[in-house]
Design a protein around this nucleic acid. Structure first.
Length: 479
RNA sequence: UCCUCCCUAGCUCAGUUGGUUAGAGCAUCUGACUGUUAAUCAGAGGGUCGCUGGUUCAAGUCCAGCGGGGGGAGCCA
């Protein structure tokens, strides 16, 4: 009868009136041979279970160790001690699973995030990761809620793709060919992919956008939300080889609409987390304060986590063009004092230091930069009338960097084909993509939002590996 | 991939100009105590000093290579 258990999160809201209840969870600490702090993952707050002296078998009490799993029945009473409102006076105790204290790696003490990363299979049982992953869940749920309310269709774009023309990065190959002795073409000795599973070379997707556009030009509005794979050798706190991305795509939509939607979307999901995960966010805010105590004053965040999120909700994102951004950088004290490592001039792909200056020093809030030079952006972005720029927009967030990359798409067939040819994108492979421009083409736009970066922004976690359950990075595929 | 720093007990970290038996706090175990809040008090156990090689009478300490990790950069979301 496991389903009769009461979740601790709910129980803690009850008025104690000697209700008989059953709870199940994992031991966080066992104090004084009498008090069990029990956690079931529904909240960071533990339920204090009281085992009255002499009422329980000594041998059984010895088995109550950190992370042992318990089933406890008892009556809910007002706590006799300080520190909690209610407690459960146990009448029956069952140990569901023992936990060898000498071998269990988590202790009731502070652990480094690096250590916890090495035991990612157990780190959900800590307060920090409990909070992070409950918030992550809420953000994911809010994303579906938002788009559903907006009338978008959730489109599952493929994970495996034969097109390597998207140019979004290095790809993981998908194959069933034997690696030690693949079939080869007789003429040049190259691998014969005609014998591979799909009869052609195939990879894991780096973006669902191109397929997303196919959906948008039928349903009007679609979004994707799925895993994305990049085989880049990136070793940073904001890159993963496997990450989740949200990619809405809207027909009858220009760059302005696109920006409006992105801003509204981001605020919506943050607001949802603020309303539904207040305790977790407060815990994470406190965690951040503690972590930053080790930093020198000038390296600490100016705003607390909650403050920062409220600030984002209550203020419009700054909107500037790329050209204006470059002007701001050129006028900046940092530039004049030669503080930038990389030079600034129109046409450059802005470096992190430039983006950080704009977002963290100059505007101190999220910034949407639009109309980038066409030479530093993808082939599918709509060419502006000036002949130099494209209708792109990136949203830069304080502390995270680029959180959204999007654009109005080039809907004019000739312009698109011309750009593909200039950038050596094989048009024949993307015949299906070009068909949307051949048959009822419409102005449309969309963007991609890195889910983990969003989770980082909301939780204040500094390393992207700590906001995904089992991070995949170069040289790391454990669990 | 580049730059830089780090790797000593289960965890977090000391370890002096190279020198005898490598330490502390927490955790664990044993005992005491029993309305505790990361309980407290007393005691005990616990180490291939990341790996391989080198220099030296002597290496945790110096040198080289390799592996793993952190921070920064590039690529990007």
């Amino acid at each position: 009868m496991f389903n009769k258990r009461v979740k601790i999160k709910e129980l803690l809201t009850w008025e104690p009136k000697e209700q008989e209840v059953t709870v199940m969870g994992w031991v966080r600490t066992f104090r004084n041979n009498q008090f069990v702090a029990l956690n079931d993952g529904s909240t960071n707050n533990n339920l204090q279970v009281v085992l009255e002296l002499g009422k329980f078998d000594e041998e059984q009490l010895k088995r109550i160790t950190t992370s042992a799993s318990l089933k406890v029945s008892g009556i809910l009473i007002p706590s006799l001690g300080k520190g909690q409102k209610v407690e459960l006076k146990a009448t029956a105790l069952e140990i569901l699973g023992d936990s060898d204290a000498e071998k269990y790696p988590l202790q009731p003490k502070k652990h480094s995030l690096e250590f916890l990363r090495e035991i990612a299979h157990l780190r959900f049982r800590t307060n920090t990761f409990g909070s992070v992953f409950r918030v992550r869940h809420s953000l994911a749920f809010a994303i579906h809620k938002f788009f559903n309310e907006m009338g978008f269709v959730y489109l599952h774009t493929p994970i495996i793709t034969a097109s390597d023309a998207e140019g979004a990065g290095e790809m993981f190959r998908v194959t069933t060919l034997p690696m030690d002795n693949p079939p080869r073409n007789e003429d040049d000795g190259s691998i014969n992919f005609k014998e591979d599973f799909f009869g052609r070379s195939s990879n894991l997707t780096v973006s669902g956008q191109l397929e997303g556009e196919l959906g948008a030009t039928a349903f009007g509005e679609i979004y994707t939300f799925g895993p994305t794979f990049r085989a880049e050798n990136s070793n940073t706190a904001r890159h993963l080889a496997e990450f989740w991305m949200i990619e809405p795509e809207m027909a009858f939509c220009d760059l302005e609409d696109n920006m409006n939607l992105a801003e509204e979307f981001i605020k919506y999901i943050i607001r949802y987390a603020m309303e539904n995960n207040r305790e977790d966010l407060e815990f994470l805010a406190q965690r951040l304060v503690e972590e930053e105590k080790q930093l020198p004053q000038d390296k600490r965040s100016e705003m607390g986590l909650i403050e920062k999120l409220e600030f984002v909700l209550n203020n419009n994102f700054e909107r500037i063009t790329y050209t204006e951004a470059i002007d701001i950088l050129l006028q900046s004290p940092a530039y004049k004092k030669k503080k930038f490592q990389y030079d600034v001039k129109w046409g450059i792909d802005m470096q992190s230091e430039h983006e950080r200056y704009l977002v963290e020093k100059h505007f101190k809030k999220p910034v949407i930069v639009t109309n980038y030079p066409k030479d530093i952006k993808a082939f599918y972005m709509r060419q502006n009338e000036d002949g130099k720029t494209v209708a792109a927009m990136d949203i830069l967030a304080p502390g995270i960097g680029e959180i959204v990359g999007g654009s109005q798409r080039e809907e004019r067939l000739e312009k698109l084909e011309q750009r593909m040819s200039e950038m050596h994108v094989p048009a024949e492979e993307l015949w299906w993509y070009l068909d949307t421009r051949r048959f009822g083409s419409v102005p449309h736009a969309g963007f991609g939002l890195g889910f983990e970066r969003m989770v980082q922004f909301v939780t204040g976690m500094g390393n992207i590996r700590d906001v995904i359950a089992f991070p995949r990075t170069p040289k790391n595929c454990e669990f």
